[in-house]
């Protein structure tokens, strides 16, 4: 029981991270209908920026924890958004309105490029950072097993909740959110009404990248190690989460992320850690077979 509770906590933490990345996929898919394959690598770039920023702060002897984490978050969000914008501008915008496959190939190319760029400039070795936030609270003890929530886990969940509230407000209540949703529904009509569609799409990419940046910082703090290949697996899982929740739906992405995180944690704990990726994909296939629009997605009507 205690063991299961611990897995629940671990799974929720992991799920929060997947959810944050999944939002980037779901928003981009919603607005231009493409799988942004390089999104996982944007997340990886952010993790590397976080490593550099933490090391830099340590070198300047800034030890105040809230200050350090805020500074790293802001730095990572700033630079990662720049990456999100640049990727869209270089690899996707020239291809708008061409065949459906072209942007996908260009995205895969971008993903390969980013991975190798980071490998070249930052080195292929795993980068460990000293623990940023240590300790936690013991919440329950039973049968010699202690259930513990670490401060890092609490921080990850709290930041995710705050971001989700802010993000929901941004999308549902502000002028930008209205423009964004309008572009999603009908970009031609939106353009006719005088809204700069290109700019809205760019902003969507930057927002997605910003959330991935937060996820990147969290993962760096949580695991303490980063390498250039983490983007691929995390990206695929997050995409699975987005599809599971219903692509195009923001709460769906978060829900999908949590479910994937939980499945992964429990599968690894009770069944077999080697096959946890297989479990994720198997669930994706099952969901798509029986509920192709995802858990919270609107069923898509095919028009002739």
């Amino acid at each position: 029981m205690a063991y299961a509770l611990q897995q629940l906590i671990n799974g929720l933490t992991l799920g929060a991270v997947y959810g944050l990345i999944a939002i980037g996929y779901t928003m981009v898919y919603g607005i231009i209908g493409m799988i942004n394959f390089a999104h996982g690598d944007i997340f990886m770039v952010s993790a590397f920026i976080a490593v550099t920023a933490f090391t830099l702060l340590a070198a300047f002897d800034i030890t105040s924890l809230p200050l350090a984490i805020t500074a790293v978050l802001i730095t990572a969000i700033f630079f990662t958004s720049a990456y999100g914008w640049a990727v869209e501008r270089m690899a996707y915008r020239p291809l708008r309105g061409s065949t459906r496959l072209a942007p996908l190939i260009s995205a895969i190319g971008m993903s390969i490029f980013l991975q190798n760029m980071v490998q070249l400039t930052q080195g292929a070795r795993v980068k460990p950072i000293p623990p940023v936030l240590e300790g936690g609270i013991e919440i329950w003890q039973s049968g010699g097993f202690t259930v513990q929530i670490s401060w890092t886990q609490i921080m990850i969940v709290l930041i995710t909740i705050v971001l989700m509230v802010a993000f929901t407000y941004l999308i549902t209540q502000t002028a930008f959110g209205r423009q964004q949703r309008a572009c999603e529904q009908d970009s031609t009509m939106t353009a006719l009404l005088g809204i700069n569609v290109d700019r809205t799409i760019s902003a969507t990419f930057m927002l997605g990248a910003a959330l991935a940046a937060v996820a990147g910082v969290m993962v760096t703090v949580y695991y303490g190690v980063v390498d250039f290949f983490i983007g691929f697996v995390a990206g695929i899982k997050a995409f699975t989460a987005a599809v599971l929740g219903g692509i195009g739906s923001l709460p769906g992405a978060m829900l999908g992320g949590l479910i994937i995180g939980l499945i992964e944690a429990f599968w690894a704990a009770y069944l077999s850690p080697e096959y946890k990726d297989v479990a994720t994909f198997a669930i994706l296939i099952l969901v798509l077979m029986f509920r192709p629009s995802g858990l919270l997605g609107r069923p898509e009507v095919e028009k002739v």
């Binding site: 270089m90 690899a91 190319g109 490029f113 991975q115 190798n116």
Partner: peptide, 15 residues
């Protein structure tokens, strides 16, 4: 630089 070149070529040819 092999794979870097490969990724770049994919993007450039598509664009």
């Amino acid at each position: 630089y092999r794979m870097l070149l490969f990724g770049t070529a994919m993007v450039l040819i598509m664009v």
